[in-house]
Amino acid sequence: MNPWKRWFGNKEPLDSTVPELDADNIPNHVAVIMDGNGRWAQKRGLPRVAGHHAGMKNVKKITMAANEIGVKILTLYAFSTENWKRPRDEVDFLMKLPLEFFPKEIDELIRNNVQIRMTGWEEGLPDATLKVIKDAIARTKGNTGLILNFALNYGSRKEMIAGMKAMLGDIEQGKISIEEISEQSFSQYLLTSELPDPDLMIRTSGEQRISNFMLWQLAYSELCFTESYWPEFTEQHFFDAVKEYQSRARRYGGL
């Protein structure tokens, strides 16, 4: 049976309108900018935090959809280094979401062999938030299935500057020579050194920009923008994005 015809953990079949996908051309790494939570809520007369809560509930659904079709890595842009500028009550709410998400969903993620990772800076995160994330990472460390990677307290420019400083430090200490600097060697100084670059980047909410997300890593990624806000981004939308990815020719500058 084709993987996109299988059932999810909730025992409900996939929508029959899911487009047929090429099982040999599934993106290995999909990155998602989960945008539009606040606007989704405001359109419904709800506070912005209600949108963030609805968006949190969507994480497992899309994770399972990605897992079903054979995506190996799903990176979700959960909180940027710039998001600290938001109102304090909204930031506090966002920081509490992992405390609800992981205790509630970790058992099912483990049953589905999902491994949790985090890309970002621990500094500045509340102790309780960091603890529940580290616990989830530890509990799923041995899993060999989909890597669910949360980009949390992450900013690409900060990442690249930190990488350059670390590389310059190694040059000064004689660990690496200037002649050895290359795209491959510099990539090892980034927070994503253990992950391949995304093949596909999806941004929800109709915005068409990268917003300081994986600027180095997205150099040759296929970009897909959808008008749907993240809380209303369904498995159908995800499969449609993968179908769009499969329709493109990735030439990497060649012919």
Results as ranks from 00 to 15, higher is better:
P3N: 10
K5S: 14
W7F: 12
F8A: 12
G9V: 07
N10K: 08
K11N: 15
E12K: 14
P13T: 09
S16Q: 10
V18A: 15
E20S: 12
N25D: 12
I26K: 06
P27Y: 03
V30N: 04
A31F: 00
V32Q: 00
R39N: 08
R39V: 07
A41R: 10
A41H: 10
Q42W: 08
G45R: 07
L46G: 10
P47W: 08
G51Q: 08
H53A: 13
G55K: 09
G55V: 05
M56R: 10
M56F: 09
K57Y: 01
K57W: 09
K57L: 15
N58S: 13
V59N: 04
K61I: 15
K61Q: 14
I62E: 05
T63L: 12
T63H: 04
T63A: 15
M64L: 15
M64F: 13
A65D: 11
E68V: 04
I69G: 01
L74I: 01
L74A: 09
L76S: 01
Y77K: 00
N83R: 10
N83Y: 06
W84I: 06
R88Q: 14
R88F: 03
D89P: 01
E90I: 07
F93M: 13
F93Q: 06
L94G: 02
L94K: 01
K96Q: 15
K96M: 12
L97A: 09
F101C: 11
K104I: 02
D107K: 14
R111N: 15
N112I: 10
I116M: 02
R117M: 13
D127A: 13
A128D: 15
K131G: 04
V132H: 03
I137V: 13
R139S: 12
L146S: 08
L146N: 08
L146M: 08
I147A: 01
I147Y: 00
N149Y: 04
L152Q: 01
L152M: 13
Y154T: 07
G155P: 08
G155W: 06
R157W: 09
M160L: 14
M164F: 13
K165I: 14
A166M: 12
A166K: 11
M167R: 04
M167F: 08
I171M: 15
I171Q: 10
K175R: 14
S177V: 02
I178V: 14
E183F: 04
Q184R: 11
S185C: 11
S185G: 09
F186W: 08
L191A: 09
T192G: 03
S193Q: 09
E194A: 10
I202C: 03
R203C: 02
E207Y: 03
Q208N: 07
I210W: 00
S211T: 06
N212D: 13
F213D: 00
L215E: 05
L215K: 01
W216T: 00
Q217F: 01
A219Y: 01
S221V: 03
C224I: 06
C224S: 09
T226A: 03
S228Y: 05
S228Q: 14
Y229T: 11
P231K: 04
P231C: 10
E232I: 07
F233W: 09
F233C: 04
H237F: 06
F238A: 06
F238W: 04
F239I: 06
V242K: 02
Y245A: 07
Q246G: 05
R251V: 10
R251I: 07
Y252I: 09
G254W: 05
L255G: 06
